[in-house]
Design a protein around this nucleic acid. Structure first.
Lengths: 248, 248
DNA sequence: CGAAGTCTTGAAGAGCTTCAATACGCGTGG
DNA sequence: CCACGCGTATTGAAGCTCTTCAAGACTTCG
């Protein structure tokens, strides 16, 4: 992918997301495009950043799935965020500097890095764009909050239903939902590590959702068979995704 | 408290926190002080903001304890953040606009509000200060992440030990730790709602910490009797609080 | 076709919740 | 100053959710 393209198709998901929250001016878009390094491809299973790293760049996910996670001493893994195309995976490392968790590629991913020096320049020249980037990190935080609510107070099945609703809405937002069908090439183990569940119980909860005819999962294709029932079960309310276009 | 004071003692905790992460210039400090409205006092139990609100101001906590929480349909409450003096409790509502959770006063609190219009001006005139405010919201997010890790993958006792370690470090950072003693005027119910536990189990886990001579709690006084043992039990590592003074 | 990873199932048990009752502590009014 | 009352803390007991261990089946891929 070339830097000097007038239009950078891989960035569509990213700008689609931004435009959902507020209007982006052409010069802001240009500033972002100019700040990005040429895209790279990383294989499934590789880590984009590790706990303790001080990256110096932030990573924009252009395609594929990535996740942020922590490993505990007993080997347990908790996934604290799932990222899809258009997500600025570790933009928070720009103010934070040091990573307090790792980011891994759940699938083959296409990424583009943005040097923190370029981000500093953006904060100096584009206040509104700065607020928009700030916003993106805060929506990530809102999602983590929602996960924490689920982990603390929702049962496994409700939590899982909620997660599928969330993923569906987020994919929809970047134009990647196909008729209540989502492409989710992850293992049940990965799913369990997002939900704070053992692989065995993850499997059983999944079966319960299937037997209630709310969901099917074959290969990497998840179908929400009854979206409304799923939302009701999950008490899903997408307010925390802040998908409102307004001046920020 | 008067706006035109040269020195605003109630802001000490806030500036202490900021200075821990990077150097703050006098004009940045002045800009913050000028942006704040006169302080207010709210009684214990009152809500500072509610889910669904669109505040128009962000609230700086000058004294007391506040918490962010969500209520579920079955009446369950999950507390997703605990805030102490010096915390910019709902600074995230500046880019987010709409609250996706509520903020309550755990004790009598002293607060000062900052209009979002003033925050916009700060983003236009003080890029570095903007990054510092951004940083504060991201540290809150890092804490939520840590809580999510605990809720998903740590046992109740480890989670509780971890929380006490965290509160201690955070109070220390604003000069409010008294010799491994922290003033925590909250109920076991509140504690349970942070840890995702029932009141009964919260009580039993607390007793276990007491019987292991790691902690005492009488009235509102919590003593960390063996801080090192507590940290070891919790696998506590304060990296996620990002208490490093460096250019941001 | 074999091997490695993933999914599925059964069974036992740990961790936590729920319900219910009792004890404690603190502020208020008599 | 004491008694009362209400919120909070504590205890016991039963049961549910989820984990762990272990084995077998399925899938995918070299």
């Amino acid at each position: 992918m070339q830097r000097n393209d007038r239009h950078w198709p891989l960035l569509d998901a990213f700008f689609l997301r931004l435009e959902q929250h507020d209007r982006i001016m052409p010069e802001e878009r240009a500033a972002l495009e100019a700040a990005l390094l040429p895209s790279e491809i990383l294989p499934e299973g590789s880590d984009l950043v590790n706990e303790g790293d001080r990256p110096g760049v932030s990573t924009l996910l252009l395609d594929g799935l990535a996740f942020r996670y922590r490993l505990l001493q007993n080997g347990a893994r908790q996934i604290v965020a799932l990222h899809i195309a258009g997500d600025f995976v570790d933009l928070h490392s720009f103010p934070l500097k040091e990573m307090d968790h790792s980011v891994g590629a759940l699938t083959r991913v296409v990424i583009a890095k943005m040097p923190h020096a370029a981000l500093i320049a953006i904060t100096e020249q584009f206040p509104h764009l700065t607020r928009m980037l700030w916003l993106l990190t805060l929506i990530d935080a809102a999602i983590t909050r929602e996960w924490a609510v689920g982990l603390g107070r929702r049962s496994a099945i409700v939590r899982m239903a909620h997660l599928f609703c969330e993923i569906h809405v987020r994919l929809e937002a970047i134009g990647r939902d196909g008729n209540d069908t989502i492409d989710l090439p992850i293992t049940q183990q990965d799913l369990g590590d997002m939900l704070g569940l053992s692989p065995v119980h993850t499997n059983r909860v999944l079966q319960e959702l299937r037997s209630r005819a709310l969901l099917s999962w074959q290969g990497s294709t998840v179908k929400l068979l009854d979206r409304e029932a799923l939302r009701k079960l999950a008490e899903f309310d997408d307010i925390y995704l802040h998908r409102v276009r307004e001046p920020r």
